[in-house]
């Protein structure tokens, strides 16, 4: 759920239209739009949807090393289409971007990749499932058993993932509304992965175990123009319950919130606008700006009122589109771990 990147990618063609480049406007019209009450077709829908403008395969994980040190990892493959079609060769309008990061309490490593579709450098295949860009890969026989590998100049990871529960669907059966004006996306997750593997840091290899959360989302216009940034939480309570909640900040200072409450057996309840709340308590100076790294997260309908704190406040993704993303832990009101992503803090 990487909103800033989303905004950037989506706005680019809009700018192009504004600058009067022929064709793009009508092509934008040509993209498919998410519709309510979706009927998903698996495994095909785990693959790419080139007729939608934007799509991602987004995995975050909370892990611990042998000595109990908390670690986090992120792996994202984005697809951005300039036209609702796919072709072979360099001319393909499909563009792929990959982000990978590892967070330790002291350090944060992040790197990115770019690729053009149509030449085999990056892509997603539904069955057997393979999502890749360069040597980075998330692959397995099905979406439930996966192996994830990625590397950067100063880190690498290689972990196995095994799902312990079902896929969960956000919003209305996977139709997730993103604004009061009705912008929406298709959005489902696999939040029940157990993880084991190794991460490689400049100090050496570390064996890790933990949990991981995969998000799948695609759309053509999921945000309203006045939405400036995004605070997104995926939390796993020690009780086994899970919470996905986000707060879309609007330019007038108001928020649009949404979320999903997930029971240990995968039963979901959508949290409509206003029934999830996240309030910044403290900020940290990160990359020349103040970023909230301590939050109070509330879901009154579920008696949730917890303090969430960054494992490493400096989890800054210093990439071509910079944002904050890193592991968090609950330090009051409840116990558990999770991931936090914040965008649009200038």
């Amino acid at each position: 759920m990487n909103v800033k990147i989303l905004i950037t990618f989506l706005l680019l063609p809009v700018c192009a239209v504004a600058q009067g480049f022929a064709g793009l406007g009508t092509q934008a019209e040509g993209f498919a739009m998410p519709a309510p009450a979706p009927q998903f077709d698996f495994p095909a829908d785990h693959g790419a949807h080139p007729d939608y403008r934007i799509e991602w395969w987004y995995l975050t994980a909370n892990m611990t090393g042998p000595d109990g040190t908390p670690y986090g990892l992120q792996w994202t493959l984005f697809r951005s289409a300039l036209a609702p079609e796919t072709t072979e060769g360099w001319d393909s309008p499909q563009i792929w971007f990959g982000h990978a990061a590892v967070t330790t309490p002291e350090a944060h490593f992040a790197t990115e990749r770019y690729a053009r579709g149509g030449i085999g450098q990056a892509g997603v295949q539904a069955d057997p499932f393979t999502a890749w860009i360069d040597e980075w890969q998330l692959a397995g026989t099905g979406i439930d058993r996966l192996r994830l590998t990625a590397s950067g100049p100063d880190f690498a990871y290689d972990v196995a993932l095994e799902a312990q529960g079902p896929l969960v669907f956000h919003g209305d059966g996977g139709y997730s509304v993103k604004s009061a004006q009705g912008q929406a996306s298709y959005y489902y997750s696999q939040p029940f992965f157990e993880l084991a593997g190794t991460i490689t840091l400049p100090t050496g290899k570390v064996d890790v175990t933990g949990t991981a959360w995969l998000d799948r989302e695609w759309s053509s216009q999921p945000l309203a123009a006045d939405q400036t940034g995004w605070d997104w939480f995926s939390l796993s309570f020690d009780t086994g319950n899970k919470l996905m909640g986000f707060r879309l900040r609007q330019s007038d200072g108001s928020y649009y919130t949404s979320g999903t409450w997930i029971t240990p057996d995968g039963h979901t309840t959508a949290l409509p606008d206003g029934s999830f709340d996240a309030e910044p308590l403290a900020t940290t100076a990160v990359a020349g700006r103040d970023i909230p790294t301590r939050w109070r997260v509330q879901v009154p309908s579920r008696d949730v009122d917890t303090i969430v704190e960054a494992v490493n406040p400096q989890s800054w993704m210093d990439l071509s589109v910079p944002y904050w993303e890193g592991p968090v832990r609950m330090v009051g009101g409840a116990s558990g771990v999770g991931y936090l992503e914040m965008t649009g803090y200038e």
Partner: peptide, 12 residues
């Protein structure tokens, strides 16, 4: 071009 105006570039 990768960081600035990629869509324009790829279009033209």
């Amino acid at each position: 071009a990768a960081t600035t105006g990629l869509p324009d570039y790829l279009e033209q």
